[in-house]
Design a protein around this nucleic acid. Sequence first.
DNA 1: GTCTATAGAAAGATAGAC
DNA 2: GTCTATCTTTCTATAGAC
Lengths: 206, 206
Amino acid sequence: MTRVHKAVAAPVRRPVRRPRDAGATRSAILASARAAFAQAGYDGAGVREIAARAGVSAMLINRYFGSKEKLFAEVVADTIASPVILTPETLQSGDIGAEIARALVALTRPGAAPLDGFQVMLRSVANPRAAAINRDQIERHHQKNLSGALAGPHAAERAALVLALVAGIQLMRQTLAIKALAKADPALLTRLITPLVEALVAPSKA
Amino acid sequence: MTRVHKAVAAPVRRPVRRPRDAGATRSAILASARAAFAQAGYDGAGVREIAARAGVSAMLINRYFGSKEKLFAEVVADTIASPVILTPETLQSGDIGAEIARALVALTRPGAAPLDGFQVMLRSVANPRAAAINRDQIERHHQKNLSGALAGPHAAERAALVLALVAGIQLMRQTLAIKALAKADPALLTRLITPLVEALVAPSKA
DNA sequence: GTCTATAGAAAGATAGAC
DNA sequence: GTCTATCTTTCTATAGAC
């Protein structure tokens, strides 16, 4: 209301820092948001911080995505579209159980490049809207792809339990960083986890 | 600064709603906080809401606990001190694996009384301080008690994997409510989960 | 022992200049 | 296409009355 101009016709030139490429700006925001949501979760990551790390002003997030929630939905959809553990190659492998166990142990080691998809989910479940977005995407992709790759009865339940096992291990080993798992020998962990996954994916299991 | 009294000597009598029992007030806040943190996580639960549900003013939280963070730490310590699944009885049972699987499936069914401890943890991991509090308490209690109950080599790693399995299943079945698990037949789930837990707790496993 | 009132910071979203 | 400045709400924590 009592608006006051700081300086009339201020002689400050505005340097053109960016080529003003809408596509590049959108991508930069998306990448920054993915990292921020993986690190701090939906509620913990602020639009100001996401924008700053992308080198733009916070306003552009609403300009390009409509809201923080829509940005989050797009990050989740993007991330799940290019899976790291449950890839098409893994699912078509002759030994799905061993493949998943090996990839899981390798990728949850401390300091490793985080599994963005599960990390974003784990750190965002407290928010009901964010949880719903994650649940829908997981059911639509991971759950569907994995249960489709399993032979035998109760494929849906067995696939969901594999997802629970993967999420639980990432949670305890990387997100919470329980010492017994964070410091464990990777070879030992693989040896302990492989039979668990195999018990779920083996068709003999019913 | 420009403080204005609403009404001088307002004739509003203040009804004494509570017997002004410090112990009872403290307990009421603690119970309310436990429910709120289980439902919304550390960041999602506000001190105003916690106080309102306990029937007191928000100020008393700082009066009795010092800060929201200290209140959270006390909730976590209290909750983990009386475990629901990993009870002394369960751990001394002859068939730990089956006991855990049975209890887990029964207690994560949709709409069930939630497992407060894991629920609080799952919905609070996004906050670094809350995560640290949970990690410390889990290592000090669950991890220690469970690995102490396991015979054979690598008890610490196997115990931590049991915790990961329990957390993952609660997450997917109750917190995220993935349909395949939320709607699954409890008997089927128990049959699928029991061998997983047994593979981890059996001393033959190494 | 408990309250009302408020300070002070930070959040998401928006208006309008350039 | 992008900015600065601001609106509005909400948060934790505190001061001081009764």
